[in-house]
Every structure is written in C-alpha cells, then in structure tokens.
C-alpha cells in the first residue's frame, strides 16, 4: 500500500483547470484512481458531469487516451477497446511488454439506469477492465433529476418535495450487490474520504483479471445542497451512518472493510443536506424513521454476511 507521499509523487494524469464544480467528489476520486492505474491506462466516460466538465474542445483534463461515445454505453465501448487490445497485441501491433489497463467510468445515471444493460453485458462477458461508478445520487449534470440511486425521500427536480409526494418515493437499487451477482471477481464500495481504502480497492481492481467494479460515493454540493468545503466530511458521514458501507466482494467472499465504532444516526447525514430539508417537517418525519430502519436492516444484513461466501 502506498503512502500519501508516494501517491502524490506519482505523475498527475487528470489535470486541473477542468470545469467540475468546487467541492465535487469526482476529481479526487479520479486523481487517485488514475495514479493507481499506472502509466498505461485507457479510459472512457459515459455522458455526464465528468465528461462534460473535463473535455470542452479543444481542452482536455486527460493525460491518458480517453474517449466518450454516448451515455449508456461506457462499458460496451470499453469492451471494444479491450478486445482490440487483445487482438492487436497478439498481432504484434501493440508492444508485447505493454500491459494496458482499461477503465470505464459512469455516474449513477449512466450506471444504475441507462447504462445498466451494457454494464451487465460486460460483467457477464468478463472483459478485463475496471468500471467505476461515481454515485452522487441523481442526474446532476442535467440539473438534479432522480435516478435509480437517489435515496428514498430525497428531493430532486423530478421528485420534488411536494405536499402529496414529499421527495423520491422509491428505494434505491443495491447496485454493488447486483454487480456482484454477476459473479465478477471483484466488486466494492468506497468513498473519497477514505483514500487509503479507495487506493487499495482501485489497486486490487486493476490487478485482478476480469471485470471489476467500484461503486464510489461522490458528494455533489449542487444537488445535495451542501457546502463545497464539507464534501469530504459529507462522504465520511455517509459511511459513519452506514448509509454507504465500505465493503468488498472478492471471488465471492464478502468483507466489510470498515465498521464504525459507534453508528451515527442517519439524521446527522440528512440534516446537512438541503435535498432532505423537507423530511424535517413534522408531517415527513416518518420518512426519516423509515430511512433509519432501512439503513439499520441493510447494515445488519451486511454484517451477517461479513466473511461469508456469496458465491
């Protein structure tokens, strides 16, 4: 495992000057992951904040080969690149000693929802690549619309906090477990506040052969209605409340990587975020209780699986 100093000495492959918002969780995730990836890495990004914010022509933040083709197909696009690599290396058109890594990146909209089928196809076919989802819990790039990752009760522009329907009425998908159900060699959840854990997981994902998946929570001050300077703290709180547990499933074996000494109430995480403001009105209080119950239940389930084989 690299120290922070060692990591900071690695060449920056994701440059500054991009147009992502102040406090956005994506850049620290990308900077760390690309440092871990090594010098020979090719990336693709689904349409979304990361793509729009890093490549306004003729500028680019990417010091590695990078492609964007559409919204729902980051995984499929990368499967073509990885296949091209396999054949062109066999044919001697890529240096034999060059071990190229492949990274597909999508937001929660591009991963949980519209890109889900393409992702599932790639996982089933077992392409040798890493897929990273930066989960900020809504379609933030187009102005905060609900996604399959949006938390229950959260207000978005398509699930506004109305008097009849107070925010999103549905539960979120458990995508990490759905991915793991493809029997992939490695799937994990991480958070940018715990760089050591994220670094370790990214390293594993790049080293393990096959389709590996990282789901990383990514605070979004714009859509969460939070202070940009609090983003890393907000990510930490998501983990401390067990809303976003850090765990991994390696070759079917589930391991909880972090167990808070004292599980904080979900309310502490909610109250910092404007998207949950309406839940603190008397008539919506029950939603917070339901959320707490859900988090408790999910956390207990996860603990009961700790150290157990899922497949």
């Amino acid at each position: 495992m690299a120290t922070l100093k060692e990591l900071s000495n690695i060449e920056e492959r994701f440059t500054g000057g991009h147009r992502l918002c102040a406090g956005c969780g994506i850049p620290p995730i990308m900077r760390l992951v690309l440092r871990v990836a090594g010098p020979h890495v090719v990336a693709t990004t689904a349409t979304g904040c990361l793509e729009v914010g890093t490549t306004i022509y003729p500028y680019t933040s990417w010091r590695i080969p990078w492609i964007h083709s559409a919204f729902e197909n980051a995984a499929a696009t990368m499967s073509g690149i990885e296949s091209a690599y396999n054949v062109l290396k066999r044919k001697g058109r890529v240096p034999q000693d060059r071990d190229i890594k492949f990274l597909a990146i999508g937001g929660d909209g591009g991963t949980y929802d519209i890109g889900f089928q393409a992702l599932s196809g790639v996982l089933e076919r077992g392409h040798n690549m890493v897929y990273i989802c930066y989960d900020n819990g809504a379609y933030m790039n187009t102005g905060i619309q609900r996604s399959g990752a949006t938390p229950f009760g959260s207000a978005t522009t398509t699930s506004p906090a109305g008097s009849v329907h107070p925010g999103k009425q549905q539960r979120r998908k458990d995508l990490t477990r759905i991915v793991a159900a493809h029997r992939v060699p490695y799937a994990a959840q991480a958070s940018p506040h715990n760089w050591r854990d994220l670094e370790k997981k990214a390293r594993k994902a790049f080293q393990i052969k096959g389709a590996c998946f990282l789901n990383v929570i990514s605070p979004c001050p714009l859509g969460w209605y939070t202070k940009p300077e609090d983003s890393i703290e907000d990510a930490k709180l998501a983990v401390e409340t067990c809303y976003w547990p850090l765990y991994e499933i390696e070759d079917g074996l589930l391991k909880v990587n972090y167990k808070p000494k004292e599980k904080r109430p979900i309310e502490e995480w909610l109250k910092k975020q404007g998207r949950f403001k309406h839940l603190f009105r008397e008539e919506n209080r029950h939603i917070i209780e339901e959320l707490q119950k859900e988090v408790d239940r999910d956390w207990e389930t996860l603990l009961s699986l700790d150290g157990k084989r899922l497949f």
């Binding site: 090719v42 696009t77 499967s79 690149i81």
Partner: peptide, 17 residues
C-alpha cells in the same frame, strides 16, 4: 454483445483503438 446498441458501441471503441 447483449444488444445492437452495445454492438455498435463496441465497434466504435475497437475502431478508435
């Protein structure tokens, strides 16, 4: 692949490679 959309997407990735 699992769909024609992904077929063309993979073709695009491969051709760009």
């Amino acid at each position: 692949v699992e769909s024609e959309h992904s077929a063309m997407s993979a073709c695009i990735g491969a051709a760009a490679a």
